[in-house]
Design a protein around this nucleic acid. Sequence first.
DNA 1: GACCTGCTGCGGGATG
Length: 828
Amino acid sequence: MAPHLPLIIDDWFTARGWTPRAHQRDVLASYQAGASQLLIAPTGAGKTLAGFLPTLTDLVDGQFEGLHTLYISPLKALAVDVQRNLSTPIAEMGLPIRVETRTGDTSAAKRARQRVKPPQVLLTTPEQLALLISHPYAELMFGTLRRVVLDELHALVTSKRGELLSLGLARLARLAPDMRITALSATIAQPEMLRDWIAQPLPQRRTDLLHMAGGAPPELSILQTQERLPWAGHSAVYAHRELYETIQRHKTTLLFVNTRSQAEMLFQGLWDINDDMLPIALHHGSLSVEQRRKVEAAMASGKLKAVVCTSTLDLGIDWGDVDLVVQVGAPKGSSRMLQRIGRANHRLDDPSRALLVPSNRFEVLECEAAVEAVAEGHQDSEDPMPGGYDVLAQHVLGMACAEPFLANDLYAEVTCAWPYRDLTREKFDKVLDFVATGGYALRAYERYARLKQNPDGKWRHSHPQVAQQYRLNIGTIIEEPMVRVRLVRARGQKHGRTTGPIGAGGRVLGEMEEYFFGTLSLGDTFMFGGEIVAFEGMKDNEAFVSRAFSKDPKIPSYMGGKFPLSTYLAERVRRIMDSPGEWPKLPDQVSDWLRLQRDLSVLPRRDSLLVETFPRGTNNFLVCYPFEGRLAHQTLGMLLTRRLERMRARPLGFVASEYALAIWGLGDLSALIRTNRLSLDELFSEDMLGDDLEAWLDESALMKRTFRNCAIIAGLIERRHPGKEKTGRQITMSSDIIYDVLYQHEPDHILIEATRRDAARGLLDIERLGQMLARIRHHIVHKPLHQISPLAVPVMLDIGKEPIFGEARESAMSDAADELIREALGER
DNA sequence: GACCTGCTGCGGGATG
């Protein structure tokens, strides 16, 4: 069915020599037929207009009073950008439509005005939606709502922010039964699942899945280096010169790296050889907002030749002129890679160009796998998960702030949210009880009693202050404790000792994890914001640094998240290794290495697990190659060492990499296995995920760390209190105490349950480990060796860099790579 | 001496 396009809009297109694009017409037609839509489209490409064409069409006659369209984006900056993009056509068509943004940056006065007299179009964030619906006026404000536009939805639904959003939408659907959703998403693995996510809360559930026809396929290549490829490490220093030359040859290059430290190192490395003084900039999440805005503005106006960045620039405002995207280090997954490639060249019919730069030999395989996956258009994005109880608790409290509710009604409402569609009444009641009283173990404390029941059975908040606290602490994003970093003048030096006070004030360079400064002594130098600075001291929530000219700075070790290697890429890497016919396309340095492995040991096969054992020095090593990512390997290492201890194999420690796991100890593992005193099938049996895992979790600090997040989200612990900001340390202390109480007296508390789930999912990768153990059951290939194998070299190099668990710490293990290689070749 | 890993996002409002 052809959509109806009002004359004034049609004329506007014509005046520009445009016609609405197919996907823009599709969205409008679907909306006019009474449906909701999920539009899958790459970034740019007139997506904003597609999302808002139905709104412009509805509002063209200026008759509509009140809020018509609510737009929700994961980024504040995107809301501002959309406002700018919308205001142009609206002004040019002379339409009487008010478009406003509302974020944490919006003044209190403007927010108050928006409540009384909302604009027809409000652009905002998921957190603001939660705030808006927690007010009694929500019913009035959203009663008129017709449309919700969800932008970059793929980026929200896999996190707790998405869970919070889903609950907000369930409430909106009740307040505005006529509302329909238009969601915009990048390409993802399971579009149907995302469509269901959207349709679930809507009374009118019909939701059309629309695809925008893709432009030219992207062109990917892997850097063919003339240099020697490192065996291990992630800094890609070898490629700096070649990268610099690549930047010179292109108009504008966007260089993605996986960590902030890598960004600092790469930026510094490029700057060191920047003889032509090319304008190259740096962009990552620790740098100050002003600094980042400056870089973004320079980029938008075409003043930069290159930007080195982390995933800060994965989403957001489009720049037209990027003609090359570089990924330095492992690409990790094809969907992530595709998203990044999409940041280059937004002219639809030109191919985006990307260059992958592996930082070590193993990563060559991963890059190769990514190139093939992208060529086939394969998606390996994460799927949305069942919702967490901590997020639900936050929402329940918010709803009590809006108006008193009956448990039955709210239960019916929240199960309309896709992540909570299978929530049992029993769990809901437990969450409600937790919000009302704190649960059995905390019932005695009045401060945890946040709800009261009216005589008519309705729940309401126990005190107006509860609502204030709730609104101050809204949201699901928890940060590590951070400190501000200020640049000051160096203190005076006298007789080699620093004297005098720290200079006051100073420019804010950015923020860093408080934790990092615990590892520094005064005078230590490190890289930050593209400069080498010296640590001058700390005061309150600020760290002071001065400019330094050290040759040998430390690299900040941030406490960031981890990108897991996708299962899909891992599978492809295994396949490449297992297919010598494909090796010729690999660089010689890599194929030679695999050939050596084949000759001196065996190659890991696709459907089995290779376990090598060999002696080295006074220790015996067991190295296996599951290719399941660092997290799963770390968990496996933890569990295997416990088992080996019980089997009296005397393990001392282990180290995990993205591809392999190495365990060492005093017992002669080869002999133990040969004489059947140690069974590998038993060692790797799946039941380790039962009692062993429980026992380990019980004594792990990891649970406490995870609990902290859940407790904050559930509102048990306040981040912010009217008038004062709590420090990270205070929060951690009180969260530890509560955890101990609950763990002892109420181990099935809803928050402990939430914590277990989060730990299993985010930090331990239990599911993936379980799948691997099932896959390799009775498919373990044991290869006893007399010395280290070529494939084991990279993971063995990691030993000594990481804190080692176990009784002893190897010092003899810090040998250089070449020595290990010579050993592997039997030259020693 | 080094070939030094671990991302991002948001956030009251009533009162004087």
